[in-house]
Design a binder for these strands. Structure first.
Lengths: 204, 204
DNA sequence: TTTTATTTGTGCTCACATTCACAAACACAA
DNA sequence: TTGTGTTTGTGAATGTGAGCACAAATAAAA
């Protein structure tokens, strides 16, 4: 296929595909067709094929996609073939829940540091990590942590973000409500829990 | 404007607009132009105007949007002018964090019941609510709870969902990974935390 | 009243994602 | 070797949302 810009939407679906392939890997399946995979994931086969084709030829016609190889290739694309470390900012309830969240490890994601402003929390253990002072964010570059999860109150979000950017963070998963300004070089994903829930009543 | 289908994307932005208007309400602002609001929210004025116009005429030319009235109108559209009750299923760490989450109340959203399967957790207090047995989900209809937040392990998600649908739930905020089958009459929003985080490394 | 500066509301255009349709590639049986 | 049934990969068609430009409406100054 001639070069075409890869849609963000495609990138966003890759983790879903990866989860599907990983599960099939565990089930010792050798190959899977786009049709079978589509049924499992609840979407349509055309989209799976088109999405994967952006990254080259993955499957064999008449056969399907080789499970193990394709899983590995998607991991490579998403840079999940090596463990990716993320810093968590905010050791409140949500932050604590995220540390214990079991879903990250299957994607080779690891929360490798926790920061908080509150002196009461600093030094405390959460999981197997100790909460560090927010003053130590500047050490992230040395520790090769380029991802951050922001779970602080809205008022603190912008100033913490600026510290993170200075510390070399390139990807941000933001749970704080409201608009966060980041340089174009930083990829930001917003998860606004209250907004998400408040959409539902509309459809009642 | 002649009738046009309202895009889902527009609905998804309404909570953002509502938060903007609510804040301006607190600041005792009388009116706001799409331009000023756009700066605050970090998006463009055309989109705000187009989105609002789907629901009729909101503002006055040369002046802007009346803050209080527009906020109230958006609340009405989203059915947030009355408190909306939601049930939380799954009293794990994530569920517990959600109960304490302060962001819901400003949208008139309330977690009004908590359910779990684990007998160890049933009867325990979380916030000011007691954890109930999952067997009691069928009582949701009588309690007029039509929204549910699903924070259970992936294995349990489908069966719980079916119980919820039977109990008359019409809107579902799903934190469980994987594909969940729901009837077309039920609106489902998925928040897959691991998938979201795993998108970030791609952009490094 | 007239002019100037704003600002909304909306038809239109453009860009882009999704879906379709089909040729090419493969497996396997006859 | 030929034929049949799959399945991928992709150009093309379709559908849809975002961005734009501008007329209409308003306020305030001249």
């Amino acid at each position: 296929m001639k070069y075409r810009r890869i849609p963000d939407e495609t990138i966003q679906r890759l983790p879903m595909y990866l989860r599907g392939f990983s599960l099939l890997e565990d089930e010792k399946e050798e190959t899977v067709s786009s049709r079978r995979l589509a049924v499992r994931l609840g979407l349509n086969p055309h989209q799976i094929r088109k999405d994967l084709s952006y990254f080259g030829s993955f499957g064999r016609r008449g056969v399907g996609y080789p499970v193990r190889a394709t899983a590995q290739r998607i991991r490579r694309i998403l840079k999940l073939d090596k463990t990716q470390k993320a810093a968590l900012i905010g050791a409140g309830r949500l932050g604590t829940a995220l540390v214990a969240y079991p879903g990250f490890s299957s994607f080779n994601l690891e929360i490798a540091a926790i920061f908080d402003k509150d002196p009461q929390k600093i030094g405390k253990k959460i999981g197997h990590l100790r909460v560090e002072s927010i003053e130590r964010l500047s050490g992230l570059r040395k520790r090769k942590i380029q991802l951050a999860i922001l779970a602080v109150p809205a008022e603190a979000a912008q100033s913490v973000t600026e510290k993170l950017v200075k510390a070399g963070v390139k990807g941000l998963l933001n749970f704080s409500p409201g608009h966060l300004k980041v340089p174009a070089s930083v990829k930001k994903i917003d998860i606004d829990l209250a907004s998400q829930l408040s959409i539902l009543p509309y459809y009642l």
